[in-house]
Amino acid sequence: MRQITLLGPQRLEPTLIQAVRAQNISGKIATVTAGWQEREDEDRELHEHLESRTINLRLYDRVSRIFEHDPGLRDAFRTRQDRLKELQRFYRIRLDHVLQAARELVAIDEQSDLLDGHLASAIRDLQLLDEEHLENVRRIHEHYEHEVDPGGRDEVRRQRDEVRAILTDCDALAIAGGHVAILLNRLRLLDIPTASEGKPLFLWSAGAMAMSERIVLFHDSPPQGQGNPEVLEAGLGVVGGVVPLPHARRRLRLYDRSRVALFARRFSPATCVTLDEGSRVDMTDTGWQSTKGTRKLLETGEVKELSA
């Protein structure tokens, strides 16, 4: 298994360099800051933090250039994104109702085998809806790939080759957070999972989400709406068995046992891991090691240290 490190947010108290040193990485480090969108190149602090050893792959800029060279691909991409947004909207409407039933059941404080059965079914309903959504998303992607064949297009091939060449010279890849869908789309179009195969990975916030198996959007206290966690789509699947939860302290009501329990049960068997400032999970062949304060959501509604 390749070495993968998940980290908490890096803006205020960066800990990336400690993680890099812990893995004895002394060479160049490729970085992806495409989630920052047009601020992609505002990476001086990151560069300095990593002892000026970074090379930014500039995926946001590369994809912009691909679209400039290949308007047909751009249009097909936009059409796909519109379809995905529409799909997400319909999924959200159904999710609201299914989730509400599960919430009401999980909030009942009674010992009853009948209640347990209904709650289990309600959670299964949720999981089925999520799975159906993932399948619908997959079909849209499949159709797009079949119709457009992005990997076979000249400018995409050229950019992929450049990225692969840069990565060959680097000892590791660090992927920052930002806009998770924009980041995911850039990583996918430039085939970063293949190009970075075997390289140690350092991932934080949306970077961790995009490389996971399933991207879960979440916020328990948004200014509008119920704060229903929702599946966006499958991630790139490089990080298995984890639902990364960046800024969990700020975004989740971790004291609310009902919500925590429901979250953990819905996404089981994956482990829902909080990634706050200072969090770190080193994933290796022998298992996971994490820093204090990196926690997991339990099906009991508790939130416990990941390494405990």
């Binding site: 803006r11 930002g178 916030s205 949306a206 959007l217 200014p223 509008q224 800024h247």
Partner: peptide, 18 residues
């Protein structure tokens, strides 16, 4: 302000994780 501005001009809360 919070309720009104976020309803009229929703931000990228659900999509951005920095």
């Amino acid at each position: 302000f919070r309720g009104g501005l976020s309803w009229l001009f929703p931000g990228p809360l659900w999509m951005v994780y920095e």
